[in-house]
Structure formats: C-alpha cells, structure tokens
C-alpha cells in the first residue's frame, strides 16, 4: 500500500475501513448493485446489515441474489428494482420471498435491458431512454413510471416505451484491485462503469491496493474505472465471499449450501446473521 500519499487517501479518494465505508450510506439511500458473478461487495453488505440500515432502494443491475436476500431478511430494504432475484443452484431466495409476501418493501419488476438502459440514461445525463419490447406485458402495466409514446421519427404508428433514468446515490461493488491513485480495475465488467457513471458516487471494496498507475498504459486503462467516480475505497481481501470474484476465486459452495438451508426460516436466518454477520471473526 502507498504510504506517502497520506494515511486516509489514495490519490484523492478516501481510503476507509469497512465500517466507515458503510457509514457513508444513509437510511433510504438508492444503491446500484451488480449480479452475483460480477463482483458483489458482500463484506460491505454485512457491514450495512450491522448498521441496521433501513428503507434502502436497491437497484439490481440487472439481477441479484444472495445480497438482496440477506438485505431483505435483515429488514434493510424499502424498494427492490430488479429483473430477477435468484440464488441459482443454491435454491430459492427465501428471505426475499418472505419479505415480499409480507409487503415489507415495494417491488419494481423489470427486464434486464430496461435496467441497463435506464442506468445508461443517467450516465449520459439524459432524463429517459427508449427501449424496444415490453409492449403488452404486465411488467409495463405495473410500472406507472414507464411510459409509451409514438416514435416521433416514424410516419406510421410505432409505439415505444420510455424509461426514466435511474440515478442511484451509490454504486456498490467489489473489484480485484485499485491503484495508488484510487483508480479501480474492472476488466471487462463494463456494467460496473455504467453503474458508476449513473451514480452520485461509487463505494468500492477491493482485494488489494497496488502501488501501480492503471492509467499509465492503454492496456490497463481500458479496463479501469477512473478515480473521479469513487467516493470511498476499503481494502477487503475476499470481499465478495461467499460469492465468487471473476476467475480469482470461486463460489464457496459449502457455505452457500449452508446459507440456503439456514435462510429457509426467519429464525435460521437470524442464527446465520449471529454467526456470520454480527460475529465478524467468523465472517471475514
């Protein structure tokens, strides 16, 4: 880690511990999160649960799994905006489903490219983005924030859906490393760039901070999210655990299986949290 840049900064980006990073997120914040395979900030998610955050608006870009299931089970969520919630091979998202049935949050069902397009609209500073498809669906019927207009560039009738821009307060994700200036390596995970551009700030956990300059070569710069978008970084080895991080480490199958079993009931989930969320030694 770079020492000469000051104790709490890398470049101009605050370098914080996990709890300080989580403390930047207030109740009611709108956060954008990536899918399970793209680098989910799970350690930060546990820190958010420890802070008993409430009424979060979680925008899944474009889907989520374990992260939303845990936040829902812990009562942190006010709105879920997503195209799917799935634990994949590890079974049903029981805590998400129970909270939905109990009307504990507002559900905004979408389709994947609609989330991407609305995030891209915010990234361009546009009020909305048109999207093909969706006509005749109950998705459209249940989204009063989506509108249908006639394509003004077409002579014959051509209805098309308009999606308002999604402008999150924070993009929240985990990546392999940041450089000495707070630039974050995101490889080909361009959805992380789109999320960061759309959001007021990005809160990022990384496996490590390296004493390199990602912008020094075209090769590394092409896979970089530039520090200007970053509101805070924490160095958290295995910060995506028990999910995978790209090809760097795999899903912890045994643990996900355990979670799938324990999270079947509210009581089991509470025991899981006691052991793996509130007792940090067990988790990190």
């Amino acid at each position: 880690m770079t020492k000469e840049l000051g104790p709490n900064l890398i470049g101009q980006v605050p370098l914080q511990d996990l709890d300080r990073l989580a403390a930047q997120i207030p109740h009611g914040a709108k956060i954008a999160v990536p899918p399970d395979y793209s680098g989910v900030a799970m350690a930060l998610t546990r820190a958010m649960i420890r802070r008993s955050l409430r009424d979060l608006h979680v925008v899944c870009v474009p889907i989520s799994g374990l992260q939303v299931d845990m936040l829902a089970g812990a009562g942190c969520i006010g709105t879920v905006e997503t195209s799917a919630i799935t634990l994949g091979e590890y079974g049903t998202a029981h805590r998400f489903q129970a909270a939905l049935r109990a009307k504990q949050f507002r559900m905004m069902d979408a389709t994947c490219p609609a989330v991407h397009a609305a995030i891209q609209a915010a990234g361009k500073g546009l009020p909305f983005m048109p999207l093909r498809g969706l006509l005749g669906t109950d998705l459209l019927k249940n989204r009063p924030d989506w509108q249908v207009i006639d394509n003004p560039f077409e002579k014959h009738n051509d209805p098309i859906v308009l999606l308002p821009a999604i402008k999150p307060d924070f993009a929240v994700f985990h990546a392999p490393f940041a450089d000495r200036n707070g630039n974050v390596f995101i490889g080909r995970r361009r959805e992380l760039v789109a999320m960061a551009h759309a959001s007021t700030a990005s809160l990022v956990t990384v496996e490590e901070i390296r004493d390199v300059d990602l912008l020094a070569s075209e090769e590394s710069a092409a896979g970089t999210l530039t520090a200007a978008y970053i509101g805070g970084i924490a160095e958290v080895p295995r910060g995506a655990w028990p999910l995978k991080l790209w090809d760097i480490y795999e899903y912890d199958e045994a643990h996900l299986k355990l979670y799938g079993e324990m999270a079947r009931t509210a009581e089991g989930f509470a025991r899981y949290c006691d052991e793996f969320v509130h007792d940090r030694k067990a988790a990190e």
Binding site: D109, T111, G133
Partner: peptide, 26 residues
C-alpha cells in the same frame, strides 16, 4: 414472475423476467 394471489404478492414467486421482456420481441 409468479402464480396465484395478487401481484406482487403472488402465492408462488419465481426469480423474475430476466431479459425476456425484450429479447422475445427482437
């Protein structure tokens, strides 16, 4: 999305629509 009940509190809830609301059209 789900079956039975009244959306979004359906009796059975599936993961969600994924990309179908778009890809099916294109």
């Amino acid at each position: 999305v789900g079956a039975g009940g009244v959306y979004p509190q359906t009796d059975v809830r599936w993961p969600g629509s994924f990309g179908s609301g778009y890809l099916y059209y294109l």
